[in-house]
Nucleic acid binder design. Structure first.
Length: 651
RNA sequence: GCCGGUGUAGCUCAGACUGGCAGAGCGAUUCCUUCGUAAGGAAUAGGCCGAGGGUUCAAAUCCCUCCACCGGCUCCA
């Protein structure tokens, strides 16, 4: 290192905002010791400008630094990274022929991609036993550097590690390795100091992945696992994981008879049962109200069109392989994969003045897309689904206002359902139509709305639709997988293709801009998200069965009918008339997640009252039926999430 | 589409490795019970063991092909 460089100084900003100045060279560990000797001793890694690095990492420019110590949030990532190594070592003890690819930590654990070995989950026990032995032995985990030449020799027979040497580690010499107990792995760290510091670890599942995530590359075996500082945290994680599985919409969908997908009727083609359709209808009514309030006009288009339409729109060119095509009298038709070309055609039937715009259409439009077979899954990925699809035809000067008002509706909806979400702003993809100027303009307009609404969002470069940039709202399912929901997409392309126009103030023809927007996204997916979000306990306004009346004995069935007819004509109410014990009736109602049970015995009948029990196991006796009905109607009208009658009317 | 796993009663699952009468619990039906807060009792019915082909004296079980589902990867207008 030259003198000149040594004299250079770097500034290091710490999480509390303070800034320290150092002369180069300085490492993460040096900084830690500079702050305090205790911190220096505890320093296990650093997060430098967002990236996790080992203590020896040399800081060569101004950075933001967080010191990682046992107990800090990042420390679990070191544990998981080291657990991945322990797994790999254990694997190779059991299966010496196993070839290692890469083994990073993830949000909730780690994985290791391996090749050359045929294992399944039955092998986990043996490998975990070996892992436990390695952890028990508490081997030191040491970072060593080997020459590029040595590294190449070590991985002579491992094409994956060679690939890593040529890519991630390109230009590096020496190469960073970590070793424990004589076993080593090419790795840039960071890790914990010894295998004994891995508090608890478990292998979770076996899967597969293409090398480097490229479809043309070969398939590797991927073993997922997790690790924590303590056994308790692992237990908690496993419990949560189990609970999440219980919330799976496919399971709840069957339990509550919401929907089914039948092998005979076809894959990815959901059949909605009465209970599911009730929820869908409520959802549809809700957005129909919002749409009418925002001056949308409802339209309807058929499920099948001539493919001429998609040749015109450009979808045919891009997606014909994923469309369901039909031969009708030697003409090609296809099930519609999108609603927008139909809506554009409707717009094109009219003559429009600049004063008529924006024109806003909406339709609950069922579309059909032949998704990859391996992707079909419950309601999250289907061949047929319904989009609450809106298309706006606007003047260029109206874009921002319109996108803003769509934003308002979406944020309002998300609030109604109390949903967590992530927002992505997706920009121009490689395969796209439209000029540079058009794209830039569209992207700027969307981003400006995001900024002015103070929405947190990630930019996804190149992830936009082929016709325009978009804003996507994504939800996570019970298993942590992310799915797109609401969306706003600008489209400067389709108006061109359909030669849409309006007459401007200047009496000349002008090109409108099209905005595609969905509030739920697809009903299927949104239904899935809600089912899992509520764990099947739908808010009263959505619940397929809002009230179940439980007569104590058959003698009260007439009274039950009377209560239902007299007070609950507008609600979804059933009477449990099976000759079961009361205990059994209550248990069943809880299992069915019915918001409210009305329990009617001779006491209630004599007094003309009801006993109300809610699904939160709260109960109130001697209730005036009118008071209950009023409350329920309010909960439904206000689309409240919680059932609150008992706590609000109890003592 | 790719890799791996799994398909047995309405549901959850045993049986499969090692071929030899297709099972359990829940649910359903019928009867008894009429019940006061999370499963009352008894009996009965219920199956092309995903589909097709093969091996075998004999196939839920072994082999092949296909279909569907599950997990992951890739894709996703």
């Amino acid at each position: 290192m030259s003198k000149q460089e040594q004299e250079r100084s770097v500034s290091v900003e710490l999480p509390d905002g303070s800034v320290l100045e150092f002369d180069e060279p300085v490492t993460v560990e040096d900084v830690a010791y500079d702050i305090g000797p205790g911190l220096g001793d505890d320093c296990r890694a650093g997060r430098v400008d967002g990236e996790l690095v080992p203590p020896e990492y040399e800081i060569t420019e101004d950075v933001v630094l967080e010191i990682v110590t046992p107990g800090s949030d990042d420390y679990v990532n070191l544990i998981r990274h080291s657990a991945a190594h322990v797994f790999a070592q254990a694997l190779q003890r059991e299966f010496p022929e196993a070839e290692l690819a890469i083994g990073p930590w993830t949000d909730d654990g780690f994985y290791y991609d391996i090749a050359g070995v045929d294992i399944d989950e039955d092998d986990f026990a043996a490998i975990e036993e070996e892992m436990a032995a390695i952890i028990e032995a508490d081997y030191d985990i040491e970072r060593v550097h080997r020459s590029r030449e040595d590294a190449k020799a070590i991985y002579e027979d491992n094409e994956y590690k060679q690939d890593v040497l040529e890519t991630e580690a390109a230009g590096e010499d020496p190469i960073s390795f970590y070793q424990q107990d004589g076993w080593q792995d090419l790795c840039k760290g960071p890790h914990v100091e010894s295998t004994g510091q891995i508090g608890a670890t478990k292998l979770l599942q076996i899967a597969s992945a293409h090398w480097r995530g490229e479809e043309e590359n070969e398939m590797l075996t991927r073993v997922y696992g997790t690790a924590f500082e303590s056994e308790d945290e692992l237990e908690e994680f496993l419990e949560n994981r189990q609970k999440a599985k219980e919330r799976d919409h496919r399971k709840i969908g069957q339990e509550l008879s919401l929907f089914s997908i039948d092998e005979t009727t076809g894959p990815g083609l959901p059949l909605y049962h009465p209970n599911g359709k009730t929820v869908l209808n409520e959802l549809s009514d809700y957005v129909a109200d919002l749409n009418r309030d925002a001056d949308y006009r409802e339209v309807e288009t058929p499920h099948v069109f001539r493919t001429e339409l998609w040749k015109k729109s450009g979808h045919y060119e891009n997606y014909r392989d994923d469309m369901f095509l039909l031969d009708v009298n030697d003409e090609e038709y296809g099930l519609k994969p999108m609603n927008c070309p139909g809506h554009a055609t409707i717009f094109d039937q009219g003559q429009w003045s600049y004063r008529d715009l924006p024109v806003r259409y909406f339709e609950d439009g069922k579309v059909y897309r032949k998704e990859q077979r391996g992707e079909l899954s419950g309601l999250s990925r289907t061949w047929s689904f319904t989009i609450d699809d809106g298309h706006l035809f606007v003047r260029p000067d109206q874009i921002e206002d319109e996108v803003q008002s769509i934003m308002d509706i979406i944020l309002n909806i998300l609030d109604t359902f109390d949903l967590d979400y992530n927002v992505q702003f997706a920009t121009r993809p490689e395969k796209s139509v439209g000029s540079d100027e058009i794209w830039e303009r569209a992207e700027n307009q969307l981003e400006s709305v995001l900024e002015s609404n103070d929405v947190d969002y990630d930019i996804e470069p190149g992830d936009g639709a082929f016709y325009g940039p978009k804003i996507d709202f994504a939800f996570e399912d019970a298993l942590g997988r992310s799915w797109d929901g609401p969306t706003v997409q600008l489209d400067f392309n389709m108006p061109e293709r359909f030669d849409l126009s309006y007459v401007g103030e200047d009496n000349e023809d002008h090109r409108p801009v099209m905005i595609h927007r969905a509030l739920y996204g697809s009903y299927e997916r949104f239904f899935m998200v809600l089912t899992e979000h509520y764990n099947g306990k739908f808010p009263p306004w959505l619940a397929p069965e809002q009230v179940r009346i439980l007569p104590i004995s058959d003698d009260q069935i007439p009274y039950a009918k009377q209560i239902k007819n007299q007070y609950l004509g507008d609600q979804r109410v059933t009477i449990e008339d099976r000759s079961w014990t009361v205990k059994r009736k209550i248990r069943e109602a809880h299992d069915d997640r019915v918001p409210y049970m009305l329990i009617l015995g001779s006491d209630e009948e004599d007094a003309g009252t009801i006993s109300v029990r809610d699904r939160k196991e709260q109960e109130l006796n001697d209730v005036d039926p009118d008071a209950f009905v009023d409350h329920l109607e309010t909960e439904v009208d206000q689309r409240r999430t919680d059932v609150t009658f008992v706590q609000q009317h109890g003592n």
